[in-house]
Computed example of a mutant assay.
Amino acid sequence: LFLLEDGQIFGCGYGQHLIDDNRQNAFVPTRLPIKNVQSVVCRNEDSFSLALDQSSNYYVWGYLQNEKVIPLKKIEGQPESFVAASVMINKSPITYGLTSTIHVLESNDGISFSKYLNNPDNYDVEFVIQDKRVLASKCYLKMASEYYSRMFSGDWLENSKVVIKDYSYHVYYSYLVMLHTGHIRIDQSNIAQLVDLANCYGEQRLMKLCRTFIRNNLNEQTISIYYPLIYRYQLDKDDEVHDKL
């Protein structure tokens, strides 16, 4: 499997079911029809693969142990990790080393506003992050975030381009997706930047999710990783985090 920086994914070899010609094995890397892929997992012992996209959707394809072919499909039910997704396919959990943890924000009305993100027909501000562009609506961002409400009501009122230098594309895009869909993926690779972003932007919802992630993953093996964040951003004010220290 080959996951590119732009979220495209290619597969080849045994179990890489091709959609276009109905063969099960691909001898050259072939693009799979999933967009904005963030992570992908597979194991030598298994013949199926799992992928996670930016909107926290999981996908599966390949073979099961009974040789049943699984064409590429989205997994229903909103699993919260690759392990949870594997249970829905394999009936028993499969661990893939350090798996990603997903926290889901529940919006009050349950409505996704993803149509206001990266919509070339409806945008008035462009975020530039590591030479990549993300299109958005100022009006929606002002409603979704106090930080953006202040930004686009002051000196940035007439500005149509915002250059982001302090955060990676994947982290900042994940934050924008959270504001539009209520979903965000938090794992060990992005927790430091997300905590800093939440602190700088005064984003209490995101900070709460970051504290929850650290609390759930704090142990003797990870304390050296998370303690600098806990100390710098005073996350030990959370009683459960404090009790684990």
Rank of each mutant, 00 (worst) to 15 (best):
F152K: 12
L179I: 00
K208A: 10
L179Y: 05
S189V: 01
G202Y: 01
S174Q: 14
I186Q: 09
Y147F: 03
S137V: 07
R150L: 08
E203S: 15
H180K: 13
I184R: 05
W156S: 08
K142V: 00
L197M: 08
V162N: 01
M207I: 00
A144H: 07
Y175D: 04
N159I: 08
R133W: 12
K161T: 11
L209K: 05
N159M: 01
Q204M: 12
I186F: 09
R150D: 00
L179K: 10
R211Q: 15
G182K: 07
E158I: 06
D166K: 11
K161D: 05
Y172M: 03
I164K: 14
I129F: 13
K165R: 15
Q204I: 15
Y175N: 08
K132F: 14
M151C: 07
V163F: 14
V163N: 13
S160N: 02
K142P: 03
I129S: 10
K142R: 04
V134Y: 10
Q193R: 08
Q188S: 13
Y169D: 15
I184A: 12
Y147M: 00
Y140H: 10
L179T: 04
C210Y: 05
R211A: 14
Q130R: 10
V128N: 10
I191A: 09
Y201R: 15
I129P: 08
M143A: 04
Y140D: 13
